[in-house]
Write a protein that binds this DNA or RNA. Structure first.
Lengths: 246, 246
DNA sequence: ACAAAAGTGTTGTAAATACACCCATGC
DNA sequence: GCATGGGTGTATTTACAACACTTTTGT
């Protein structure tokens, strides 16, 4: 798998904030870069015959093994100073030791995407420029490369805003899940506690859930009911929005 | 004013949906292109030392004469087929008759911006590739070049969504305006009638308006009060959002 | 039997909606 | 004086927020 730069549009890159949900925590998929050993968002470039959405889909298939990932562009990052290379990488570039790195020695405008995946179905794979791919908890990750911390922060801000008028969870939770799990997802994104009873009433009023007969057993304490998303209503809510704010 | 393509980042362009409000109608600034005589959104390219926001600001200063225009990127348009040239333009390009048009014979990813301006303060100016610049009413404009109709539509959709949690009007209305005028602006964007009395109560509850002593005279019928925006509260609302939806 | 989590219900307040009435202005 | 638009007010419904009690489960 070589890296052919002449397939790509110049000046344009993309970075993906891939969210997963596990152990009641919001996680992001990160890569550990060669040479600089910094952590970075998975990213890539746009082939000459691709839309940016197609490019992001291709990149994320390579990094996660998954097809049909839910993703959405949310902002373009274009500060002229954003692409300043890490000194360690710059050294390698200038030494000529690794010619495929030459490509990085230009200015990129990066299109930010966020994506939702089922944590349990992802098999993280590093790319040509990284030697490790791992899930990190939002709260516990270390600093990221270049402006990637900013990109992640902006993705979270966008998410928080969209939570007011769009449903979330279908792409992040397993097929069957409990109300407390869904609530934890909302609480993690909003970074605040919600009232259990009011949350349930509200989310049910959207009619995007089917209550199942089954309960989730095994955990300590009273076994909660399982729910699944009502796909028809969920997708309709994605298009037409919900009502007021949280 | 020549056109130096080597100042620009390749593959990247930007298109601006410039909104103005006049005669109780929402207007867009459009250019009439040379050769093809199609109408187009004002657009441009990104210099090698600019952010895309700086580039859009520069472009709009040239097209409107205004500094400090309120603008915001809202979406990247990147369908590989979007930049297909109009046959009339393609002929000119291939004839070699106008070398500055060569630049257009490549694929661009375009960053969509929307902008709000005070209609009365704008002096529309065409660019190197257009021979006319005019305001057109949203409802009455003819079809636009390439995917520009789609871009305009997406800008409107974005506006409608943002209306739910952000104030609007400061950049579109004159310094002093009446409640019915502000309401018309909302109604035009939302494309539906709102109740006069409930609108007033709601918008006042946001505390973004100062009621003035003066009334607007001259029109037929009872003279309405004038209002101005409370800039402190308005900007705060822009950052922190309002409450529920319309 | 107890602690902790989950199911279900009530109640007060605020906001959204749907109206009605009176007042100014130009013709 | 009358049509039209504008200012102001109220009653009803709906949504939100705060809070209490009961039930189930593992230890």
């Amino acid at each position: 798998m070589s890296f052919k730069t002449d397939n790509y549009l110049e000046s344009v890159s993309l970075d993906c904030v891939v969210f997963g949900f596990h152990d009641n925590q919001l996680k992001v998929l990160l890569l550990s870069m060669k040479y600089s050993h910094e952590w970075a968002l998975p990213g890539g470039f746009v082939c000459k015959d691709e839309s940016v959405e197609q490019a992001a889909t291709r990149v994320l298939k390579e990094r996660t093994g998954l097809d049909n990932i839910f993703l959405k562009q949310f902002k373009v990052f274009s500060d002229p100073e954003r692409s300043v290379l890490n000194p360690a990488v710059k050294d390698v570039v200038e030494s000529g030791e690794n010619t495929s790195l030459e490509w990085f020695n230009q200015r990129f405008i990066s299109i930010g995407f966020y994506a939702f995946v089922d944590f349990t179905k992802v098999v993280p794979k590093p790319d040509n420029f990284s030697d490790n791919a791992e899930w990190k908890s939002i709260g516990e990750k270390e600093a990221l490369m270049m402006d990637h911390d900013f990109i992640l922060q902006e993705a979270l801000n966008t998410l928080r805003e969209q939570l007011n008028y769009q449903p979330i969870g279908y792409n992040l939770l397993p097929d069957k899940f409990t109300m407390p799990e869904l609530q934890k997802l909302y609480e993690t994104i909003l970074d605040k506690k919600l009232d259990r009873r009011n949350f349930q009433r509200r989310i049910l009023s959207f009619n995007i859930l089917n209550k199942l007969e089954e309960r989730k057993t095994g955990g300590a304490h009273k076994s909660p009911f399982l729910y699944e998303f009502n796909l028809v209503n969920y997708k309709n809510a994605l298009k037409n929005g919900l009502t007021g704010g949280w």
